[in-house]
Design a protein around this nucleic acid. Structure first.
Length: 425
RNA sequence: GGGUAGGUAGUCAAGUGGCCAACGACAACAGACUGUAAAUCUGUCCUCUUACGAGUUCGAAGGUUCGAAUCCUUCCCUGCCCA
């Protein structure tokens, strides 16, 4: 199975330019993907493009990761119905550094490899370029008609919010990236999410018109969730790759909570398992869906890929502590268990208040676990709050020192999956 | 600059003088059922509040009125058409 065939099987190809497969089988090819510095960390959505680069490198080609120092200053209109706010230069630089650091983890930059990975920043070639140079040497080759026909532009022109000249120009800026990499780094391939198809083709068009060269591209489908939700979001927000922003435990949980339909697709995209292995797993899963074989394999593979074996083990250990025997009394958790669990939000609370005896509602509101008393009351009435793994039946229920675990903790649950550890001091 | 259509809660979107904290949909959160799935059903969903109630909202500021998201004035913002 060659690279393209494999990616097709994995469901990672949406659009592909004719001749791409031939080019890849002909010679070692450099291929690039651009990463937006809109935040100082990448999130799980960026994993797909990262994996494309990894696959590319595995197949013996040279991956180039481009961070958009320049394009980030312009703002990509693709998929956006409104004009974007520009980032300050300071934020941008901060984000660039964060994104670069993460990308370095996933690709092999060892310079002794013939196909070692490379990282570039398009600010390096845009910094010196003057506006006049740009409109003479780049803008002259592409008609406004061509640019306006792109979906990302067309939608905005027809939509309600209009589009600034800056964002309109975006595709040319990104297109020029491809041209620059083509001429300076012999880079003949660009990949990206399918929302990038328009921008990418502007690049290949530019390469053809300016230099008569030939360049290739393919895109991967944008991920959606089976229930229509946004991929990469959980109840607690975005799932980031940075362990500081999303703990390995929560990261692991994200994948473990995948629906069956999603897990079947994602196992192919996010793991390196072969078709035979995947087929076997799917079969096992069908026999005993409750075992969630697919989800477990998936979450293990991805967590290990992103946070290493150690992060995975930690996440798994915490998962077991929390979910393995939900019915076990909270008292059975050791002090160490409570202290070391990382998927838990921590709060502290005054010992004197507990000594006097407080009602649950005040306790929840005063610790900050729940924003207000009213809300705490509503949750309790709906049966959504447990203290030390026992459901709170009555909002007036008092809390006192007899509720303390190990003399200093109270374990609060909101719903099934949200845990809070309150340290009484 | 001229004309015109608009700006309502996280999003979409009703509402055109009192019955409006504002229909509905989606998203979100919680419950039941489950497998820490899905689907379905239920509750919550401006803020605070011991289910009472109180406070602050409908681009902004003023005004008319017993009473305004709804009427008037000015301003700001956006789309479209014309210059």
């Amino acid at each position: 199975m060659n690279l393209i065939e494999e990616l097709k099987w994995r469901g990672m190809i949406q659009d592909i330019m004719p001749g791409t497969a031939e080019q890849l089988s002909k010679e070692m090819t450099s291929g690039y993907i651009g990463f937006d510095p809109t935040s100082d960390s990448l999130h799980v959505g960026s994993l797909v493009p990262i994996l494309l680069l990894v696959h590319l490198q595995k197949a013996g080609h040279k991956p180039v990761a481009l961070v958009g120092g320049a394009t980030g200053m312009v703002g990509d209109p693709s998929g956006k119905s409104e004009e974007r706010n520009l980032l300050s230069e300071e934020t941008l630089n901060h984000n660039l550094a964060g994104v670069k650091k993460q990308l370095e983890k996933y690709l092999d930059f060892n310079p002794s490899l013939p196909n070692s990975a490379e990282m570039v920043n398009n600010y390096d070639w845009f910094r010196e370029m003057s506006f006049l140079t740009f409109i003479r040497d780049v803008g002259k080759h592409i008609t406004v008609n061509y640019m306006s026909a792109k979906d990302s532009v067309k939608k905005r022109l027809e939509g309600e919010n209009g589009m600034s000249f800056t964002e309109f120009t975006y595709q040319l800026v990104q297109g020029y990236d491809f041209y620059w990499l083509y001429t300076h780094k012999n880079c003949k391939l660009q990949m990206g999410g399918s929302d990038q198809w328009g921008n990418i083709t502007t690049g290949t068009e530019l390469i053809r018109r300016i230099g008569g060269g030939e360049a290739f591209a393919f895109t991967c489908p944008l991920l959606t969730k089976a229930d229509g939700g946004k991929f990469g979001k959980s109840e607690k927000g975005n799932i980031w790759l940075d362990p500081e922003k999303t703990s390995p435990y929560l990261f692991y949980q994200f994948w473990l909570n995948a629906t069956d339909a999603d897990a079947e697709k994602w196992i192919k995209i996010f793991t390196f398992l072969t078709p035979e292995e995947v087929a076997l797993l799917q079969q096992q899963h069908q026999q005993d869906p409750g075992a969630r074989t697919l989800q477990k394999t998936l979450s293990r593979a991805v967590t290990t890929f992103v946070h290493g074996e150690e992060g995975y083990q930690k996440a798994l250990a915490d998962t077991e502590k929390i979910f393995a025997n939900q019915s076990a009394p909270a008292e059975s958790l050791s002090e160490e268990d409570l202290e070391s669990m990382e998927g838990i939000a921590r709060f502290s609370y005054g010992a004197d208040r507990i000594g006097q005896g407080v009602d649950v509602v005040s306790f929840l509101a005063e610790t900050g676990i729940i924003a207000s008393k009213g809300e705490a009351r509503k949750l309790i009435q709906g049966g959504g709050i447990s203290i030390n793994r026992k459901k709170v039946e009555n909002a007036q229920q008092p809390l006192d020192t007899t509720h303390l675990l190990h003399g200093k903790y109270i374990l609060v649950q909101k719903g099934k999956k949200n845990y809070y550890l309150v340290n009484i001091a």
